[in-house]
């Protein structure tokens, strides 16, 4: 007890674990990186090579066209794919959260330009292909 009192009086002098029955402090977990409060499993910056340019064009073609969207969307939102676009000279990114399982996208940093944000079946297929090109098969719940 005297030793314990001494440790309390002089923290750091006696290493933790020296006193029997005392548990070591849990290591501090690093905060998981998040995008719009959703846990990031991995991320990739699209570079200027041809494959990435094609991917970028595909993404812009989908989201730049009202016909990509319909009212058909799930009553849920579990985004498995995020996209962040930063224009030169504009500090506000255009961010997208995409939930394939719930068939819809949400935007941040801009006003959603269309009346609907659910995917058409064609859009769903295109986005699935984009996901597969980047990371392989789309897991359920993405």
């Amino acid at each position: 007890a005297a030793l314990q009192g001494l440790q309390q009086a002089l923290p750091g002098i006696i290493p933790p674990g020296l006193i029997p029955g005392q548990t070591a402090a849990a290591p501090v977990q690093p905060a998981q990186p998040r995008f719009k409060n959703f846990v990031i499993l991995s991320q990739r910056q699209l570079t200027g090579d041809d494959v990435d340019e094609d991917l970028k064009d595909d993404i812009l073609d989908i989201f730049g066209d009202e016909d990509s969207f319909s009212a058909e969307r799930g009553n849920c939102f579990y985004p498995g794919l995020g996209i962040s676009m930063v224009r030169p000279g504009n500090p506000t990114p255009v961010d997208l959260l995409i939930s394939l399982s719930c068939n819809q996208a949400m935007g941040d940093g801009f006003r959603w330009p269309y009346p609907a944000n659910g995917f058409t079946s064609e859009t769903h297929q295109k986005l699935t292909k984009i996901y597969e090109k980047l990371w392989g098969p789309v897991p359920p719940g993405a």
Binding site: F35, F38, I40, I59, L60, G80, L81, G82, F110, P140
Partner: peptide, 24 residues
């Protein structure tokens, strides 16, 4: 032509992120 703001992204830096989605 693409709808704004996607018509301004030719020189944009685009990052794609794989997110957890629904926890299994």
């Amino acid at each position: 032509a693409r709808t704004a703001p996607f018509d301004e992204m030719d020189k944009a830096q685009v990052t794609v992120l794989r997110l957890q989605g629904q926890e299994p």
